[in-house]
Design a protein around this nucleic acid. Structure first.
Ligand SMILES: Nc1ncnc2c1ncn2[C@@H]1O[C@H](COP(=O)(O)OP(=O)(O)OP(=O)(O)O)[C@@H](O)[C@H]1O
Length: 655
DNA sequence: GGCTACTGTCTTTTT
DNA sequence: GACAGTAGCC
């Protein structure tokens, strides 16, 4: 009785196609539909529906693109039925990290592995190059280029030869050296008990390829749902398939026109070929858009129609929402634009528009700096997404490294970092110490055999013994991660003050880190989340404007959206133009489509003249210049720009 | 010999 | 503002 009431309730929240997707629980299902058509809502209500059919929530697995979106969906479903909180969800990477801690021994490595972020991986590669003496050659590929090659090999399933030829043909003469570095790098990670992001996927797939392990991992999952399937890569699609092999109940959701992670190996063909991969798959299309007004959708449609790959879909507002044509404004420079946007946000605030319903989107995070200072000047609170900084700043990494050596004493990069901070120790001494450290197998041994003897005859013996004491004291398993951080920070504080003079913001950030750590009981979990979950803070219900890269805005929506910096060479990015690679530029175009379709009621487009540099025209973004797109927008003069006195030319010089 | 402080270069997008 | 490379200092 109660159940049918609940199902009835679900039905009222969905249209017919959505309802069909929600209630088709058995077998493979593909939901493919345009932006704002209610795909996310399908996943949310399907989770709820399953649980209300008395499916064990722990047997439902929800794989999404960011952990934040998984958590949000689960949270919303839980509001209707608290059992939903037990649904298992996360990104492919976070799922892999969790599973591998459990089964790593069967694959031949310890469960206490460290996860490298991009910076760590590059540093490890640098060390491998040095070891081989390749760093002497100035022409040799840079470490980040090498990382890209290795990553492409994994994520696009290519050989080193193909990857080098396709992406860096200049380096073809180095191909055999590059292969050597790759081997060295793999060896290095194994010795140090570390995995990079790609390894997480590779090893998870490896585990799933083994029948017995696959059973151990996947038997508990009876229903699997994957969001944003157009942005999965080959390995991830394989993983999904292997996980679903037993029960066959898998739903993929996505929109091929919104594929924006090709640079990371995503293959938008995955979603189109999903029915081939899963024979008997039911394909459901959602036709109506519930998010945006028709004039906003018209811009999206015009962009869609310009794409080389033709998408037959057209976005139509289901409820027939009316609204203003999106406006396009031109500014003299980026500072004018920033000042104008900040002004507009301020007047919206004066009209009591909730700040949560406003977002300012841009192609690259660092171009938002002028805007940030304008908002600060006006006392408008904002939160920045994308352009990942926090965990990458030197001081945060320093502090985290102390914890890493405790969690995994074989983590050479962490030792390297921590030792270099000590006075009187430079690169040479660090290398000597690392040599000693690598031959010991536990932290106490390392301290006894390597650190203590070294400290003996040193000048700065006071600092060195303080270092030793701290490392020893944070090795106690009974301490919480936060308590350990306290000790580390106490030791690190004077080092930081010496390194960065008077910088209060860094101390504040370490305090934030400590607060985050407080939510964890286990050190390993905390460290795993630091690398696998970029989401820094907990829930925050204060009022703030969202500043975000378009990539990080995927799947989200706001009443008012300002899309700034629509300058050819900025958006599309200069990098994509310089290579003149058609598929890169198309990805930028899809990115623009994603950006436009975030807005519910009001969309403002703006650009400034940059003057043509080497890359791009420096004028208006090429995706807007097309006649059919221009017809969907309203070009506005900028009264505000004239109002601005030359004050900000001042700030321009100072920036 | 090894450490440190200084200078010039370059900055897409993210798990 | 972070990093690589370099010159000078202990
Ligand atoms: N059946 C419906 N009736 C009314 N509103 C709906 C319905 N389905 C979805 N919506 C609303 O439409 C908006 C967009 O939905 P949703 O975020 O699920 O779309 P999406 O397809 O996931 O979009 P994107 O591809 O951009 O991620 C949301 O505000 C959602 O609440």
């Amino acid at each position: 009785m109660q159940r049918s009431h609940a199902v009835q309730n679900i039905k009222t929240q969905l249209n017919a196609a959505q309802y069909e997707a929600v209630t088709t629980t058995e077998g493979p299902v593909l939901v493919i539909a345009g932006a704002g058509s209610g795909k996310t809502r399908v996943i949310e209500y399907r989770s709820l529906y399953l649980v209300q059919q008395n499916v064990d929530p722990e047997s439902i697995l929800l794989l999404t693109f960011t952990r934040r979106s998984a958590q949000e969906m689960i949270q919303r479903a839980s509001r209707n039925d608290t059992r939903c909180a037990k649904i298992d969800g996360g990104t492919f990477h976070s799922f892999a990290s969790k599973v591998l801690r459990r089964v790593s021994l069967s694959l031949g490595f310890s469960g206490s592995f460290t996860i490298y972020d991009e910076g760590d991986a590059e540093e490890a590669i640098r060390r491998c190059c040095n070891k081989m003496g390749y760093d002497q050659d100035k022409e040799f590929p840079k470490k980040n280029e090498l990382k890209t090659v290795f990553s492409v090999c994994v994520n696009k399933g290519m050989s080193v030869d193909d990857a080098v030829q396709r992406m860096y043909s200049d380096y073809e003469d180095f191909t055999s050296e590059i292969k050597t570095v790759q081997k060295e790098y793999m060896d290095y990670k194994r010795r140090n008990n570390c995995l990079d992001y790609d390894d997480l996927l590779i090893y998870l797939k490896l585990a799933l390829d083994n029948e017995e392990l696959r059973d151990r991992i996947s038997s508990r999952y009876r229903y699997i749902m994957v969001d944003e399937f157009q942005d999965t890569n080959g390995v991830q699609a394989d993983i999904a398939q292997l996980l679903a092999r037993k029960n066959g109940n898998i739903m993929a959701v996505g929109d091929d026109a919104q594929s924006i992670y090709g640079f990371r190996g995503a293959n938008h063909l995955n979603i189109l070929e999903f029915p081939k991969r899963f024979p008997g798959c039911k394909v459901i299309k959602l036709e109506e858009n519930y998010r945006s007004t028709q004039p906003i959708l018209d811009v999206g449609n015009a962009v869609l129609s310009n794409m080389k790959h033709k998408f037959e879909k057209r976005l139509v507002s289901g409820p027939g929402l009316k609204g203003e044509k999106p406006a396009l404004r031109r500014f003299d420079d980026i500072y004018e634009e920033a000042a104008w946007v900040a002004d507009r946000v301020q007047s919206l605030r004066a009209q009591s528009v909730p700040m949560r319903e406003i977002a300012i989107l841009f192609r690259t995070a660092y171009t938002s700096m002028p805007l940030q200072s304008e908002l600060i000047k006006k006392g408008i609170r904002f939160k920045l997404f994308g352009g990942r900084k926090f965990y990458e700043t030197a001081h945060v990494r320093d502090v985290i490294s102390y914890l890493r050596i405790v969690a995994n004493p074989a983590d050479e990069l962490a030792w390297h970092r921590v030792l270099l901070l000590l006075p009187g120790i430079g690169t040479r001494t660090v290398e000597r110490l690392l040599e000693l450290i690598s031959s010991e197998d536990s932290l106490p041994h390392i301290i006894d055999k390597a650190i203590t003897p070294f400290c003996a005859g040193q000048k700065h013996s006071d600092v060195l013994s303080s270092f030793r004491t701290v490392v020893q004291s944070i090795d106690s398993p009974s301490l919480t991660p936060a308590a350990r951080l306290d000790k580390v920070i106490a030791h690190y504080d004077p080092i930081m003050k010496a390194k960065y003079k008077k910088d209060a913001s860094r101390a504040k950030e370490l305090f934030m880190l400590r607060n985050m750590a407080q939510r964890y009981d286990s050190l390993k979990e905390f460290l795993a989340d630091v690398s696998v979950d970029p989401d820094k803070e907990g829930p925050d219900d204060s009022e703030y404007v969202t500043l975000s890269t378009v990539h990080s805005a995927k799947g989200l929506e706001w009443d008012k959206v300002f899309l700034i910096g629509l300058v050819d060479g900025v958006f599309p990015s200069g990098r994509s133009l310089i290579e003149n690679n058609a598929s890169d530029i198309e990805e930028e175009q899809r990115l623009f489509y994603v950006a436009v379709t975030r807005a519910k009621q009001e969309l403002s487009l703006s650009f400034y003249d940059k003057g043509s540099g080497e890359k791009g025209s420096g004028g208006l973004c090429r995706f807007i210049v097309s006649r059919n797109v221009k017809e969907t927008i309203e070009e506005r003069g900028v009264a505000a720009a004239i109002r601005r006195p030359p004050a900000k030319h001042f700030s321009k010089r100072r920036r």
